[in-house]
């Protein structure tokens, strides 16, 4: 292999001395590999890593016309403010409640759906169902936001008309904070449960069929088989998916909330990301918004590391 590699050539000057020649031949073999990585590295440095340095403005009173170099330093003032400002505490609370509910249901529903779908014997039916339930995953929250605002409207929205048939008074889903949270969780599960099912279906398919045969000979009915074979077999995957989603507990779904909320539900529906957007870009409080964002990033990073550790410990799962 190595001999062949020397044929891979990019030109370089004739080296003098043994060390230089080794360096030159290394460059000859792999120089182009570095060059091929260059565009990705440059973009990552500018738009991935420079913003990480930019978080220093969380410790400043940043003013755009002064720049980072001349803006005054204020230490941890913004963080103190963050933990004393009632609005931001409410926002953190909302984020945890909304994304906590999402995590729970986004785990239960796909597992149940995968188990039920496995019981479908007609393969055309199964395929058709899969085609329909995977679809919403690919639609953006702009499209779905527009659709849901229409359907949930109090003035003759589809859902309220349906409730009227059942004799229930119209509900102002998008104006009442408690209903708004429910809408967020249900619509999120509606959009993603199908797609999340895929991984559990794959796990169920890979269960050794001889286990079921043996159970059947022992007289276990289908319910017992699901309870004692299917569920325990996919438990590691359930644990992995569950712990990994804990790492994203501070991401309550910016796109979704942003496209469904309005000032009437800020109190119970505002999450960290929408809050950062409003105070940062609309009110131009760059430093405070960055501090909130940094708080979220750090907690998020720690949670990801912990959840990967947990996933490894509990289910022997490693991503790298």
């Amino acid at each position: 292999m190595n001999k062949l590699d020397t044929g891979a050539a990019s030109t370089s000057s004739v080296p003098s001395g043994k060390k230089a020649s080794r360096a030159a031949s290394y460059w000859k073999r792999t120089g182009m590999l570095h060059v091929l990585l260059l565009p990705a590295v440059i973009i990552a440095l500018i738009y991935g890593y420079t913003p990480m340095l930019g978080i220093v403005i969380a410790f400043q009173e940043y003013e755009p016309w002064l720049g980072i170099r001349n803006s005054p330093w204020v230490g941890l003032e913004h963080f103190e403010y963050l933990f004393n400002y009632p609005d931001s505490l409410q926002v953190i609370k909302n984020t945890l409640i909304i994304s906590g509910m999402k995590i729970v249901f986004q785990l239960i529903v796909p597992v149940l759906f995968a188990l039920l779908l496995t019981e479908i014997a007609k393969s055309w039916f199964k395929r058709a169902a899969q085609t329909l339930v995977y679809l919403p995953h690919f639609l953006s929250w702009v499209i779905l936001g527009g659709i849901f605002v229409d359907i949930l409207s109090i003035r003759g929205g589809l859902l309220n008309r349906f409730l009227a048939v059942l004799g229930i008074d119209p509900i102002f889903f998008l104006a009442n904070g408690d209903w708004f949270r429910i809408v967020l969780v249900v619509s999120d599960v509606w959009k993603e449960f199908g797609f999340s099912t895929i991984i559990f279906l794959a796990a169920i398919v890979s269960i050794d069929p001889s286990l079921y045969e043996a159970a059947e000979i022992d007289g276990a009915n289908r319910w017992k088989q699901v309870l004692h074979i299917s569920l325990p077999s996919i438990l590691p995957i359930i644990i992995v998916v569950g712990t990994l989603s804990l790492g994203r507990v501070l991401d309550a779904g910016f796109d979704q909330v942003f496209n469904l909320y309005n000032p009437l539900v800020y109190e119970k529906g505002d999450i960290i990301d929408t809050f950062v957007y409003r105070i940062g870009l609309l009110d131009a409080q760059f430093s405070f918004a960055t501090a909130v964002g940094l708080f979220k990033s750090i907690v998020g990073f720690i949670l990801i590391v912990i959840s990967y550790r947990l996933a490894y410990k509990l289910a022997n799962y490693r991503i790298f």
Partner: peptide
Amino acid sequence: RFKGRNMYSWFFIFMMLFNGGLIPTYLVV
């Protein structure tokens, strides 16, 4: 065969795990 590959890998993976957040990215862009 490609020394430095590991370094590059971590360089990209770290970017997946951590980001500067909305405001600093906005300012850089």
